[in-house]
């Protein structure tokens, strides 16, 4: 069972995230890390690999510092990693990102039985790259898995929607994106941290993947950020301490603001 997990190096959501002069996400001025939502995909891959004598490859696209995201996943227990690093990729939209990921996955040897991703990145938060990647790879996709079982050449997924909880099946190879409900990601152990130092990390450029640099990056993006503006900070409102009348005061506020 060969599993590849696509992960993203993102600016820390706890920090003050902002934009660069070219209207792209500022990735230099803010500390980065493995997207929290991708940890669930790494954990799920490790669990499946442990049960099926499998191997887990971590794949990321990003600048030099994105190696930190790979390191974290290797420390958790993944076997190897691939880092697609090419200056031309800067500013790529989801469409171009899915193209590069697809080409990188097609270059893997052996080919994966299962592609896992998080439900969305914590910076762009679009949540569309997994689906685009499946579309490009011609794989069945099941997104937002809250439970995942792999057996008999099939994935079976539980997905909790607003109207119903569904069971969805697809034959391998397949792509599955997982939610933060699926597991509790492990912390790297000391042994894991030491072992990670010896694990192989391949670095690939666009040329290695046979991707034309003109198809990616900011100028090739099919969407453009025209402008951005910081949301004005909310004016701190009225705070009252409950002295037996807090609920009444709350209701008075609701009445004054026409919510009743």
């Amino acid at each position: 069972m060969n599993i590849v997990v696509c992960v993203k190096y993102v600016p820390d959501a706890q920090a003050d995230r902002t934009f660069s002069v070219d209207n792209t996400t500022d990735r230099a001025g803010v500390d980065g890390l493995l997207s929290e939502l991708d940890e669930y995909a790494v954990e799920e891959a490790l669990k499946i690999a442990e049960a099926n004598d499998g191997e887990v490859t971590i794949l990321t696209i990003g600048p030099d510092r994105a190696a930190d995201a790979l390191k974290k996943a290797l420390q958790m227990g993944a076997h190897r990693a691939v880092h697609v690093n090419d200056a031309a990729i800067h500013g790529s939209d989801a469409i171009a990102t899915s193209l590069v990921l697809a080409k990188a996955i097609q270059k893997l040897d052996p080919q994966p039985d299962l592609v896992l991703t998080g439900m969305a990145s914590t910076d762009g938060t679009m949540g569309v790259v997994p689906t685009m990647l499946a579309e490009r790879l011609g794989l069945p996709a099941v997104t937002y898995a809250s439970e995942l079982t792999v057996a008999d050449g099939k994935v079976s997924v539980r997905r909790d929607g607003d109207l119903a909880s569904q069971t969805i099946e697809a034959t391998l190879p397949a792509l599955v994106s997982v939610t933060d409900q699926i597991n509790e990601p492990r912390y790297p152990s000391f042994k894991g941290i030491m072992a990670a130092k010896k694990k192989p990390v391949d670095t690939w450029t666009l040329a290695d993947l046979g991707v034309d640099a003109e198809l990616v990056g900011l100028t090739a993006a099919w969407t453009t950020v025209e402008s951005f503006s910081a949301r004005p900070p909310r004016q701190k409102g009225q705070i009252v301490t409950d002295e037996g009348d807090g609920g009444s005061k709350l209701a008075v506020f609701l009445g004054e603001h026409k919510f009743l």
Binding site: Q235, V240, T241, D242, G247, L250, L254, H257
Partner: peptide, 20 residues
């Protein structure tokens, strides 16, 4: 917040519910 109550929700909410 535009309006905040520092207090125990189990006291504040029932009172607010009744008032609403």
């Amino acid at each position: 917040v535009d309006f905040g109550v520092v207090g125990d929700l189990f006291n504040v909410l029932p009172q607010a519910t009744e008032a609403v």
